[in-house]
Structures are given as structure tokens and as C-alpha cells.
Design a protein around this nucleic acid. Structure first.
Lengths: 197, 197
DNA sequence: GCAAATTAATGATTTATTCAAG
DNA sequence: CTTGAATAAATCATTAATTTGC
């Protein structure tokens, strides 16, 4: 009203709580109609106009994403510390009678830094791997556009990666016809033994 | 090998178990590199190619979501039955000392049906509101291009919508200056009482 | 028991949405 | 605002489960 009032909207606690609750309940980018109704209601608790509501949701959503980003970074730092110590043991001979090492996760996040554009890494394209011969970090969907002639490289040529041992059973030839696939004794592959973390 | 083989991939139990385990461990949408490595490993247990792995994760994730959807619908049906008996009481006079009804969500789940496209309702944009005078369901961003002269209509002209009663506290005038806003006793607005689902 | 017929699962494609870089 | 890159949703198509009648 008067020029003495502050130059920008200052949400009252009630307004804030309602906005936050609406956000939690799924309203992330209200449309014009929703904004009007929200504004009308919130005006009961203090001066407010539509743009305040609009900007609030915009900012809140954006800063929500930032929080997620930061949490992801923390988790990745944890995983890095968990997996890095095991790297030496990956150098071992793989030609034993166990099925080979299994870990399809991306290489541990680079030496932990605090502020890097990291959210896009797990949500969008992962710049991911050091260009492997003939692969060039192609996004999975791009593979879709080609006739899927991607050859399976020799196991030994694949980077063994970290730990996660699977299937200590011996390598009887399982390549059979489709119909026969389900006839393998369940005992043989009971879930309890492999996939030891 | 021979043309007698089936036209589509038929995962062996071992392949399936590994895929499921990887999924459980967090691999939901593997990138090209991961797909290749997974494919290479799974080829030990039977014929397989990259696209099979790609599709498997796509489908598995999608059908996982479908399960969640169905469970949500069941819960909503339960809630509907719990809350529906109260509808008559919404017709009561609203000029009491409670603050008005608050529900900015799109119209509630219609009378419980079993098979309706429901997930998009909460995840994607809601085609939302019946075109309100002069608003025409305009995307919120369009409002940005105009000088934000959107007037706040009278409360009574706003569609009260459904339930979700907020702030049963009395209507003391909270319109105060900015600086004072944060000084309201937290007790008065402790989150436990309102926003009852 | 056993196939033919029917239904449920699930692999494979296509189409729509989303996000954000240019 | 347009568009590129990626994912999610919807859909089609084939295989496996199962039901059914004999």
C-alpha cells in the first residue's frame, strides 16, 4: 500500500505453510487458474499478488532440484569411498571356474569435489565412459536407430569392473532353445548363494 | 541358430535373475556402455543382444510403475469410501468462523473405476480446469508475458472445490508488515492440526 | 492325460512428454 | 521459442500359462 511497505513480497508464515503444503501435494507449476485461486486464498493472510505465487513455485521447484543435486553428490562420494578400496582386487586372474565379476555401475564418481554439475549426470546423459573402442559412449536410444548389430565383445576384453561376484555355479552350456529355458532345476539357481555383496 | 528359433528373445532363468538383481540394486535405465557389459555377461547363459537388455529394463521399469499405480488406485478407492460420506456436510453454510475450504488440486478421482488412465493425472500436466472466465486454461508461463495485472477475484466467486479444510483457527487479521511476519508464535501454526487428509 | 482354445505375461515398437541448451 | 536428447507411456505382437472338452 504505502511507500513504507517493503519493495518485495514477504510471505507470512501462513502463506508459506500453505504454499509448501500445496507443493508437497504435487502442485509444482500451477497454471493460471490455479495461481489465481491460490492467490485469492492467500490474500486472506496478507498482501499478495499472482506473480508472487508464480515466482514462488518457480523458485521452490528449482531449489528443490538443487537440494537433490547436493544429496546425490554426497551419496556418490560415499559410494566412491565404498568402492575405491576394492579396485586392487579387480586385477586378479579371472580365468577361474566362477562366473566373472559383475558390476555394471558406472565408474565411481571422480575424486569427490563439492561443486560440480552433477545432477545431470544421473538424470540426463552420462558423459560416462572413457570412449571404448567402437562404442563412443553412445546413448542407449541411439543404438535403437541402428539395426542393433552391436557385437558382443569378448568377455575378456570387457573391463571387469568392481566385485559383485555372481553365479559360483559351473559353466554348463545354457544356450538352448526358448522353450527349454524354464526347465532348469530351480534348486540349481536358488537366489540365496550368489550376488553376494 | 536355425530358422526354427523363436522370433523374440526368451530369457533364461539365469539371465532373468541377474537382470532382476541388477534392477533391484538400482540399475533402472542402463546407458549404452552398461547395456553392452550386461549383454556380454548374460550371453554366457544364452543368446542375447543389446536391445534385449535395453527393452527388458524399459519394460520392467514401466511395469513396476504400473504396479504402483494400481496399488495407489486401491488406496484411493479406500479413501474415497472413507471420505465420501462427508460430502453432504460440504453443502453447509461457509460463513462460519473457519477459514474456507482449500483444495487446489484438479477434480478428485472420479467414482472408483478399475481401469482408467490415472498415472498421467499426477505425473504430467493436468489438462486441469474447466475454462474459467478470461483464463482459458492458459499455461502459467503465458501470464509471464503480460504485466501481471491479474486481479484477485472475490473469494466467493472462486470455485470452492473439494474438502481439505485448512486453518481452523479464527480469523485474526494477519495482514501486517513484512518484518513482523516471522514473529508469530510457532505454537499457533504447528503443522499437526490442519491439512488433515 | 492331451491338445485346442483362451487368457495372462512380456518382449518389441511407436508415440508423447520432459528438460534444458542454443 | 525452437529444438535436440532422453525417457516414459501407450501400444502391438508373440510366447507361456491356463482352462476346457473330450
Amino acid at each position: 500500500m504505502s511507500p513504507a511497505t517493503s519493495s518485495r513480497w514477504c510471505p507470512t508464515p501462513e502463506q508459506l505453510m500453505i504454499l509448501e503444503e500445496l507443493y508437497r501435494r504435487g502442485i509444482k507449476t500451477p497454471n493460471a487458474s490455479q495461481i489465481q485461486r491460490i492467490t485469492a486464498h492467500l490474500s486472506l493472510y496478507g498482501n499478495i499478488e499472482g506473480k508472487n505465487v508464480f515466482y514462488w513455485f518457480q523458485n521452490h521447484k528449482a531449489r528443490d532440484r538443487q537440494k537433490l543435486k547436493r544429496n546425490l553428490i554426497k551419496q556418490q562420494q560415499l559410494q566412491y569411498q565404498l568402492y575405491h578400496p576394492d579396485l586392487h582386487y579387480l586385477q586378479q586372474n579371472q580365468s577361474n571356474h566362477h562366473y566373472p565379476i559383475l558390476n555394471y555401475f558406472d565408474p565411481p564418481p571422480p575424486p569427490p569435489h563439492t561443486s560440480s554439475p552433477l545432477y545431470s549426470l544421473s538424470y540426463h546423459k552420462s558423459p560416462a565412459f572413457p570412449p571404448q573402442e567402437g562404442l563412443e559412449g553412445a546413448p542407449a536410444q541411439m543404438m535403437m536407430n541402428h539395426p542393433w548389430k552391436v557385437d558382443i565383445p569378448f568377455i575378456s576384453s570387457i573391463r571387469p569392473l568392481e566385485t559383485l561376484e555372481l553365479f559360483p555355479i559351473t559353466a554348463t552350456n545354457f544356450k538352448e532353445e526358448c522353450k527349454d529355458n524354464n526347465k532348469i532345476s530351480p534348486k540349481l539357481i536358488s537366489t540365496d548363494h550368489f550376488l553376494s555383496l
